[in-house]
Design a protein around this nucleic acid. Structure first.
Lengths: 341, 341
DNA sequence: AGGGTTGCCCGAAGCGTTTCGGCTTGGCAA
DNA sequence: TTGCCAAGCCGAAACGCTTCGGGCAACCCT
């Protein structure tokens, strides 16, 4: 068994109270005492008992994530990345990361309720925000801290980490506009995802700013997979006269689909068609083989740490403003853009 | 806030003690009292506080899994399956499932130590057993329950769930032997995995029983990926005279690689080469397109429930014998075997 | 010198649960 | 009648931690 505060108190000659305050870095403890307590803690191999701490303070140091019931996104490697990233980020902060997959047909909110009724969770990471998110409503109603990966509105009232997806959509479109393109197709993700909508809005804004119509036939919603990318490309390019001269891919898998469809049609990039992509920089051997593609880039891997920080901040009651963080994206020129023919 | 035992005691007129005993189904509580307590618990929406329970009883109801530091297996979808399956199985049993990814370069045993020193975990699910597994030694030394997915020895001294991989290797080989094949290649997984070794042993046993040599050139270790399968196939088939007339694939991805390599070589299945595979039945769209293949089959998805049961049994101190479970596999004839030419 | 402030420390209560030991009561055998 | 036992119940202590309220010096200000 691990040492307890009482052991350290006996060892140092201090009281349990003072040891607790020393180790938690409270401010009415002398510097010397803090050092003594910390040394004793190390010497005795002390580790705080999370259950006891939770019981006394109401905080358990455990945070959770509820996986949506079924894989709506086929990007398993994204989940693995996320789970790894979050779990490491939280464990660096001395917290446990609990994962709970909702069962098929089970209400996600119900799962959250179950977990907080168990009385052990300090807060939640939410993914895949929705417009009027029932999870958010529920958790806020119960006063349970949360942080969102992405955001359901442009200026939500909860902590989040996101990138400016409107700007992403606009930037991708403008890159092509600057090269002279006028018909720009966008193969986006599933409609219900907020970032997808935001990027679409960005695309529309950029087009409007250039006095061009946002032709619905040039925008496609779908799973972010290779085959969806390929099929949408075939559809858009088969329009006799109105075919786009440039395509925007929502992510690398879609881009891959675009490339294979284009090569099937005998079209070259960028001489026949320009292509830009938003790259999440997910690792994956199958993407290595892709031709370099211009566009925007923002590593999904960098979002886990700020997410964890955001949730911890929320748990510790820090003000909302500092917990809403917008990450940056880079602009990449890799030569997949040329003027239209 | 959730109701506490005290609330139920007040509500029913019983003592806290008796309510606790009633809800935990102890035996010196009258049947009527148990019913009353249970009804009150539901009426008041009572959920036991895990932290308090842990503190008092030493059990937290939380179990954990430590993900190996880096993806040695590229099968992300396997991890997602596993995490989902385990998390659901445990939550059905009213337990929390904690996930902890080891950092790059961090010692896995150290992670386990950290987690149990935190004093919150009741036990662990271990995956990817090794021969003399340090994790097992450590956990057993500390008296922490565990359950293994697979097994590091044929008859280990810890709870596990596994299938009989020697039998799998033997059966796959015998299927081909029965059709008259004499040179049977085996494209297996990475050497360090126990199930890989077991299947190899099965292959050797079957060959020896048929008085045939187990030619090392006909056995290949490697990642279970499509490209490894394809490359190994090319290597084996390029041997001028000694090329195998049949191939065993360690899993579906390898089989897929085999198929593409064979078609590249202009060889047909089963007329030119017979192929068998062990199918884990992982879901995945890319495998749908494969030709039906004979072999063995055992759904990995069915292992999570018994694994969870095994760990819970271990935590509750049930005897080892009932906690070592060997799952079954099916034998599938899908027409990918023909007599050698 | 008196009163306030500051720095450091401690005792004790309490978080929600389990569990040990002891307390009643009624029934039954001696 | 007395003694015993089983069934059912309860009080109180314990788990390890945080925190509230207070205490005791030593210092500074008037």
């Amino acid at each position: 068994m691990s040492a307890t505060l009482k052991d350290i108190a006996a060892y140092t000659g201090l009281s349990v109270t003072q040891v607790s305050r020393a180790l938690n870095d409270h401010d009415d403890v002398s510097a010397e005492t803090k050092i003594r307590a910390r040394e004793a803690a190390i010497a005795l191999n002390y580790h705080p008992n999370l259950s006891a701490r939770k019981l006394a303070s109401g905080r358990s140091g455990i945070v959770g994530l509820v996986l949506p019931p079924q894989d709506r996104t086929p990007r398993d490697s994204m989940f693995v990345q996320m789970v790894r990233g979050l779990s490491s980020a939280f464990s660096r902060q001395g917290r446990l990361f609990v994962l709970n997959a909702a069962e098929e047909g089970e209400d996600v909110v119900e799962v959250h309720r179950r977990l907080i009724d168990g009385g052990s969770l300090d807060g939640f990471v939410l993914i895949e925000p929705e417009d009027a998110d029932r999870r958010v409503a529920f958790l806020q109603g119960r006063g349970v801290p949360l942080v969102m990966h992405g955001r359901g509105a442009l200026d939500p009232d909860y902590p989040f980490y996101d990138i400016d997806n409107i700007a992403v959509g606009r930037e991708l479109t403008e890159m092509l506009l600057r090269a002279g393109h006028r018909r720009i197709g966008f193969i986006n993700g599933v409609q219900s995802m907020c970032y997808v909508t935001h990027r679409r809005v960005g695309w529309e804004m950029a087009l409007r700013a250039a006095d061009l119509p946002a032709d619905p036939a040039l925008h496609e919603h779908g799973q972010m997979t290779e085959s969806v990318g390929a099929l949408a490309t075939l559809r858009m390019m088969s329009a006799p006269a109105d075919r786009p001269s440039a395509l925007i891919a929502g992510n690398m898998l879609i881009a891959k689909g675009i490339y294979s469809a284009l090569s099937m049609l005998g079209l070259k990039v960028p001489s026949d068609v320009s292509v830009v992509v938003h790259d999440d920089m997910l690792p994956g051997e199958d993407l290595m083989a892709m031709p370099p593609t211009s566009g925007t880039r923002s590593a999904l891997a960098q979002s886990w740490e700020p997410l964890a920080q955001g949730l911890i901040g929320a748990i510790e009651g820090r003000p909302l403003a500092g917990l809403q963080r917008v990450g940056v994206f880079e602009i990449v020129d890799a030569g997949s853009i040329a003027p239209p023919v």
